[in-house]
């Protein structure tokens, strides 16, 4: 589910449409922090896609924690 890029950053390897997997990843994450309402994209609230510590990149997101 995760890979490390050339900068040593943790990249979600399943892209921007892996809704269930992003929920599963967030369910076991100790750092999950819901972002502002205007930045939420997943219907399931606790999802890495809705986390304040995800930084969107063209193909996916980087986890900053």
């Amino acid at each position: 589910m995760w890979k490390v890029n050339e900068k040593g950053e943790k990249v979600f390897s399943l892209g921007k449409e892996a809704w269930q997997e992003a929920v599963e990843a967030a369910s076991v994450c100790l750092h999950f922090n819901l972002d502002d309402d205007d930045e939420l994209v997943s219907e399931e609230e606790r999802s890495c896609y809705n986390c304040r510590y995800r930084r969107w990149i063209p193909e996916s997101f980087i986890c900053l924690k």
Partner: peptide
């Protein structure tokens, strides 16, 4: 959203 742009998230 691009690697050359230093946005927050």
């Amino acid at each position: 959203v691009h690697p050359d742009i230093p946005y927050t998230s």
